[in-house]
Amino acid sequence: MRNLTSPPKLVIFDCDGVVVDSEPLTLNLLCEDLASHGLSLSLPEVIDLAVGGTIGGIGVQAKAMGAAILDDWADQFYEKMFAVLGQSVELIPGIEAVLDALDHQGIPFAIGSNGSHRKMGITLGRCGVAERFAGRAFSPEDVANPKPAPDVYLLAASKIEIAPGDCVVIEDSVAGARAGVAAGMVVMGFTHDTPAAKFAGITDMLFDDMADLPALLGLNAQ
């Protein structure tokens, strides 16, 4: 486990649950949808199944667990999810102040998500921050493998020309945290909706309030 001794040269945020508060909306919809397909799971069970994964991967697992879903299930679920997010999603409280603090000190930031570009366009657009991540929002569509593979984080660092060891990843999922570790980056676990115990032995530090992040990143030290 490593501690920051100075501000990072690049901060890479996961999108869902870190920048936009999309997880509760998506998880509740997923719980209802799987139940309608014959797989009744509690919300905690759906969280374990889904957080940090891809919709396609969730469909494969759900089918293996007995859900009566067809090959086009993921496409149908995406359309339902996009409609809900486009109407209701909001920013994670405090994230804009974090972005402002990074801008103030000239530290670039990016997104490395397991969500699609279309999904990020909807959520970031509705929340009014799409322009802040223009050209710096990366998805599994851009790489060979989704998280927990490090591909999307390594791509972000490469595009912005920052060495992985000088990057910090902000994650709310175990899969994403493992991706950041595999990329050789400092990983900070956001525990606002994720139990801290899930990050045990993986992340370099934990926090549960975005208001604390600028100080943890050393942005107030300069």
Rank of each mutant, 00 (worst) to 15 (best):
D14G: 03
A64S: 14
A149E: 11
G52L: 01
A156N: 03
L10H: 13
G94E: 00
I55M: 15
G66P: 03
D151V: 00
E45P: 12
G94F: 02
L154A: 09
H104W: 14
M188V: 07
G56K: 04
I122E: 00
I12L: 08
A177V: 04
P8Q: 09
A163F: 11
R132M: 12
A215G: 09
L154H: 10
P214N: 10
S139T: 14
D204I: 02
V187D: 01
I160D: 08
G106F: 11
Q61N: 06
P148E: 07
G125R: 00
H117I: 06
L43T: 03
L154P: 10
G218I: 02
V89P: 11
H117E: 05
L25W: 13
K198C: 11
A67F: 11
I58H: 08
S36K: 14
A144K: 13
T191I: 07
F77A: 02
H117W: 09
P108Y: 14
D72E: 06
K80M: 07
D208M: 12
M65W: 15
E90W: 12
C127K: 00
H37I: 07
A50R: 01
G17K: 05
S40C: 03
T194L: 00
A137G: 11
P148I: 03
I12W: 07
T5V: 14
L216S: 06
F138C: 05
A157V: 08
C15D: 03
P146M: 02
L102W: 04
R126W: 02
S173E: 00
G57I: 01
D75G: 05
C167S: 13
A97L: 13
D142H: 13
A134R: 13
I111F: 06
Q87Y: 15
V46K: 01
G184K: 06
K147F: 09
P108S: 12
D212P: 15
L99D: 11
M210A: 09
I55H: 15
P140K: 03
F207Q: 03
R178D: 04
F138N: 03
V129R: 04
F77D: 01
G135C: 08
G121C: 03
K119F: 15
L27Y: 07
L30N: 04
D16C: 10
S22R: 04
V98W: 05
S139M: 04
D14N: 00
P148W: 05
A177Q: 02
A211H: 13
A196P: 10
K119H: 15
S173R: 00
N3F: 15
H37T: 11
L91Q: 05
V169H: 07
L219N: 08
V152P: 11
S139W: 09
A144W: 14
H192G: 13
A35M: 08
L206A: 07
R178N: 10
S42K: 08
G121N: 02
R2K: 13
H192Y: 14
R132Y: 14
P164W: 04
K9N: 15
P195D: 03
V60Q: 01
P140T: 07
A149Y: 12
D75W: 03
V51C: 03
G38P: 12
P164Y: 06
H192V: 12
V168W: 07
A83Y: 14
H192F: 13
K9W: 15
S6Q: 14
I95L: 02
A221F: 11
A156S: 04
A149W: 06
